[in-house]
Structure formats: structure tokens, C-alpha cells
Amino acid sequence: MTDITAETTAPTELPRTKTDWMPLALVPALALLALPFIGSPSAWVTLTVAGLAMGMMIFLMASGLTLVFGLMDIINFGHGVFISLGAYATLLVLGPLAGWGAADSVGLNLALLLLCIVTAMAVTGIVGAVFERVIVRPVYGSHLKQILVTMGGLIVTEQAIHALWGASPIPIRLPETLRGAFVIGDIVMERYRVVAVGIGLLVFLGMQLLLNRTRIGLLIRAGVENPEMVEALGYRIRRLFVSVFVAGSALAGLGGVMWAFYRQTLTAGMGMEVMVLVFIVIIIGGLGSVGGCFVGSILVALVANYVGFLAPKLALISNILVMALVLIWRPQGLFPVARR
């Protein structure tokens, strides 16, 4: 929090920021630590892959929220409704294209999944833009009001989902070839989870590239550090903020699609249910940090899986336990974002 000024004194060549390896090492260390307790390596692989998949899905849902917070200092308690909305948007595709899902072809199935994702992201992106304009913009700067008003937005949007699609849970089917599991020896990996890991990694890498290697990413990171200065240099910071909010909502929609196919049931409250995990993850990662959010998601999911296997009773509070331990170690989260 205090050493921002220390770094600005090197004029010629910026010192390379040191990578903070400790939290990164935490995940493999945890996985290795769990191995002797679980005993059988095949069960360990199954649990680890399942945990990674779960972690990726949580990351997809949480990344937008943490980015929006980091950039705009806005906490969107209504984020969960974008997850639900993304999930329900799959119905727009699954209805007319049911044949693609039933077909026994990997290409068609993946195309269907992709189409679902694109539709969901478009829908949640548009709703996100409206949400930002109507609900969030009047309360910039006041956290108390933000929490209240976004909760209100959550209630209204959730009820609107009920009004549009009905209040009863809707079952959806995974595309045919994504069902079942890969079996290698006695290692069992559900196919869908492998797909989820792939998509999660892709999004994470894409975000890292965008944030660290492009001009827009540079502006976003600069906006996090000092919005007034970016504005003074002639960039419209507001437009940037809005686009990040829209992107964050779209990411929640993407997470919602993945989560919906994982649960295979749609309810309007599904987003809010998973929001608890999302909040834990972004607290663990450090509010505003995408990398921290990634590590936090995997950490929470892995711990939940291992503990669920070893001591099912304890699994219920394992998330809280992880959060408490991390906060004792690093009160601002794994990767504290400067300035805050």
C-alpha cells in the first residue's frame, strides 16, 4: 500500500516488477500435499482434474467482478444475476438447435457449446450495459449505495427471469459427445470437466495477454492505478470503464453457460448461490487482481474437493477456513492490488 512512490523514481529503465511466486507455488504444493493423504494416485488425479474444472468455472464467473472492482472501485452484488442470465440464454440456442446437441459428432456439439457461449455473452453484455447505465452509474463513489442498489437490480432482474422463462427449474442436456468420461487405466476424468479446464485456461491466457500486451490493457491497468492521470492524457476513461463493465458481465455470462451445463438444471437463483464462492475467491485473490482470482479459484475448488473426499463433514466450511487462513497470512488477499 505504501510503496507506490518508491517505484516511480527509476527514470531510464523501469525495474521489472518482481513476480510474487509464493501464492503461485501454493497450488502445486497443496496438490502434492494432498497426495499422501488420499493414497491412491488415480483417485488423486480424478479429484485434481475435477477440482481444476470447478476452479476454472468459478474463475470465469469471478474474473469479471474482480476486474470491475479493480478498475472502477465498484462492487456489483448483482453480478450473480448475469450468471443466471447467461445460463438461461443457452435456451435461446438449445431450443432451435436441439438436433446439434443430440448429434453424435464432436464438431457439431462443440459448435453448439460455442454458439451458446457467444449468445450468452452477447445477452449478458447488452444487459450489463443497461445495468451499468441505469443501476450503477448514479451511485459511483458510494459503496453503501452500490451494495444496496445492485442488490435491488439483482432482485428485479431475477424476477424478470422468472417472468420470462417461468419460475420452475428447467433441465438442460449436455451435448451428446461431452457426456461421459475419459478412462485412462483407472483414472476417470469427466469429458465436460476437461473441456471446462480448456476454456478456463483459454480465457485466463486471453485476459493476461489483453491486459499485459495490448494498448487497451495498458490503459486499463493505468486506469486502475490513477484514473485522473489517464483522463488528463486525453483518454475517455468513462468509455473504458463501461466497456470493462460490459466485458465483466459477458464473462459472467460465459461462466453461467459453463456452470449451467455442469449442473444441467437452470434456476434463476443459481447465480446467487454460486456468488458466495465467487466472493470468497475474490477476497482470497485480492480485490481487483485477475491473477489472484485465478489462483484463488483453483485453491478453493481443490481444497473443497480434497476435503470433501477425506472428511465430507468438513467440506461445508472448508471455503471459509481457506479464506480465514489466507487472510491471516495476507490480510489484503494473495495478490494485494496497490493503491487499495
Partner: peptide, 19 residues
């Protein structure tokens, strides 16, 4: 305005109240 959607309207009232 289905009877089960009463929360929708109270939610809207809530948002308006905060502003």
C-alpha cells in the same frame, strides 16, 4: 403482474427508493 412476481415491483420500488 402475475401474483408470484410481487417481489419484482417491490424490488423496483427499492431501487427507486435508494436513488
Amino acid at each position: 403482474i402475475h401474483p408470484d412476481r410481487w417481489l419484482l415491483w417491490l424490488g423496483a420500488l427499492f431501487v427507486i427508493s435508494v436513488y
